[in-house]
Amino acid sequence: MNDLGSEIPPQILFNSDLVSSVREPRDQPSSITLDSFNIPGRFSGPGFQRAGFGALQGAYAGVLLTPELGLYKQQITRISVRIAAAIESSRRILDLPENWDEEGSPAYAESTWERAAYHAKQTAIEYRKSNGVWVNPPKITPGPDGSIDVRWKTLERSVLINFPAADTEPVQFFGSDGDTESIRGTLDIFSPNQWILMWLMR
């Protein structure tokens, strides 16, 4: 087991055709996509390329993390009380019945909520490991068509991540500062995604 706490060294895959798989903004300032920051993660679409072994470059933190540097990371085993409370509170989404909004919305599956909760927890923990602080809890709310939304927000930026009811569907996200910077794409929730919070907290 390495110092990042996983049995298998982190693998970095990126999609060289990412730009074509992400919708381009219309008549808007240039947006920042994952590809332009060489941020680790597994993206949907064809043409995966193995970019390296165990090296994570967080553009916003400006730090190159290697397995060796991982020796200095804090081992975090418990989540902050506030984040834990927010995640647990969101479980009431599962109590919503079929057609709860009288507009035909389905009920929510526990597996969908678990994926959203797992992402929220792991992302917060990974960010804490790298930066030494806990972020404010996200808001976890009912989404369209049985999906669940997780929204992280600061005064300057926000990012919405949508977890579809079907786990075969991609987890999509969009974040923006409301002005010139934006990020968009799909996530592999089982890869490290603390870069999203690093971007958010920039």
Partner: peptide, 13 residues
């Protein structure tokens, strides 16, 4: 269409 991006943009404005 009210996609994830569109819904987030509405949240911001």
């Amino acid at each position: 269409e009210k996609t994830t991006e569109v819904r987030e943009r509405f949240m911001q404005i």
